[in-house]
Design a protein around this nucleic acid. Sequence first.
DNA 1: CTGAAAGCGCTTACAG
DNA 2: CTGAAAGCGCTTACAG
Lengths: 351, 351
Amino acid sequence: MVNMASVPTASGKNGSVTMLDVAHHAGVAIGTVSNVLNRPDGVTPSIRDRVLASIDELGFVRNRAASKLAAGVSNTVGVVLADLANSYFTDMVRGAEQSASKAGKFVVIGNSDIDIAKQRSYLTFFDEEQVSGILVAPLGGVIPPEDGHIARQRPLVILDAARQTHAHCAVSTNNVAAGRIAAEHLLGLGRRRLVFAGGPIARSRALADRLQGAQDAVADVEGATLEHMSTDEVQVHDGRRVGALLAHRDADALPDGIVAAADLLALGIVQALTSSSSYRFPDDIALVACDDNRSAYDSIVPISTVDLPGQKMGSTGMRLLLEELADSAEHEHQHITLDPTLTARESTIGR
Amino acid sequence: MVNMASVPTASGKNGSVTMLDVAHHAGVAIGTVSNVLNRPDGVTPSIRDRVLASIDELGFVRNRAASKLAAGVSNTVGVVLADLANSYFTDMVRGAEQSASKAGKFVVIGNSDIDIAKQRSYLTFFDEEQVSGILVAPLGGVIPPEDGHIARQRPLVILDAARQTHAHCAVSTNNVAAGRIAAEHLLGLGRRRLVFAGGPIARSRALADRLQGAQDAVADVEGATLEHMSTDEVQVHDGRRVGALLAHRDADALPDGIVAAADLLALGIVQALTSSSSYRFPDDIALVACDDNRSAYDSIVPISTVDLPGQKMGSTGMRLLLEELADSAEHEHQHITLDPTLTARESTIGR
DNA sequence: CTGAAAGCGCTTACAG
DNA sequence: CTGAAAGCGCTTACAG
């Protein structure tokens, strides 16, 4: 603990202790204090310890604004987060933090809250803050053209990118593979009459890709069929509606396998079918979802799901950014596409 | 769009455009550029527009490191977030952002990820970054004594505070009231044989308070009883265990009302009782939970819940911080306790 | 390895 | 309202 009463000097404007105070107290030059903080290995141990003791005794807090101004760089990476409530995005942040902390970088987050104006204001803010780089999962998967100058001035990596780009590094999820993996899992279990639930396809590239993947998988198997039941959104109540529709069908019109485009949708389907019919998962119908939200695990029937690689996406994006920072001359932008993976649970393989 | 080819000057170290470049381009003094950016109202409109045009044309990006160093302050508030995956905390951030944006402040987030060392490193980081203030929901509800010097140097407000303190402003949830409100709701519906599910009480002040509140409410009603069924944690599987225990009881030993200490716990109770018994919600058993996670709404039987005021806590905390910043001389620290509110759903009032 | 000095890009009294 | 100048607290060649 710092004993404030014993602090001898505080030359800073706001009564704050400066490096100069520390230097005087330790009997060294100010540059030495800076070296102790930034390149401690190159300082004689006895002097280093003396400086460290003075820092402690005076309660010195470095001024990062001054550091950044003098050095022109910072060891901070800014992450623009699209939605605090969506675990796909918060997983990305977690992954990014993991990679960053290994490299001794700080990660600070700005929440754009699914608002393109806020997204821009945080991009600008981080730019003005002189961060060393930016990670962003932009709304719509693409940086708006008006914000392009930010990406040109400062290393920036796009997460969950919707398009190929040569302006910066990017990481994407292979949603076609997600749909294919889900359908192939059902087909591998012998299911042939499949339903793909989710929509609207026209408004979401990710959903359209998942449907495409499922169609591809079904096309590869003789006698297999895929019906698309579209929904307004992919929330629980949309799933309940799908489940209710299915519950009223004749047994021979019923699918034996369902790919749900999202976990909450799958949750609703399970709820509707278990409460309003005698159909059983997975005996009568096998169900696989996409996303791996916690809800899939917490469902009354734990739901098999295709995990979107949120955390991997964050760590990969941060790795690309760190590479760019380490070697900006030689650096060539890369676009990495990540494959999702299947987690099989009771809704397809029973217990 | 900025046409980079037309940029005439860039005197900054990294080829960046500085205020001086803007001043030259607009034919004014550098101080005038600063005024346009920081106090635009006091600048002659024609000159202001000329400066703004130059800023746009040159693609000038202000350097916040330099601003902070020269001014000694920033318009940024740092929020140390305990857990990105817990909606109680992310709600706080949302509330804080709402209050902050009205006041023109930027909010940046550091994720401590339920790690006391990371919590400290972000507190220190924000301190070093010269933020104008800090909002933190510290682990355990209290700032560790070792980190006390941070709170002494910089305005800081504690969210979800566990204790009264005179060192800074703080906001708390009234967990006793939460328990009381939940129990009173059940008692008001005529239920008399209540169960409080959740634990361990010894390790969580919040849970202990909720139990206390429920006990208080029951003590006020003649003939009402409360049984405490403790759990290891408050996850879905703990709830399933409670539900399984209840399902095996004789009908006359069964409660007619349950207060679940958390939403996931309630979710498990509903799942276990609907699948392994013929008991019905709310006819046989009425159930009310605490937290208002999304899961309560998404349950097969939508669960009544006592909302913890996460968003309100964030906005209130930010308001206290802004007051302290606006008038640090006259400021007196306050501790505000927020009452939770009940959201009644199918699990207690049917449909 | 150490120490004195210039300079990073702003803000802010101060004089006009 | 405008303009010239000092200074914010660091970092970093540079010379020793």
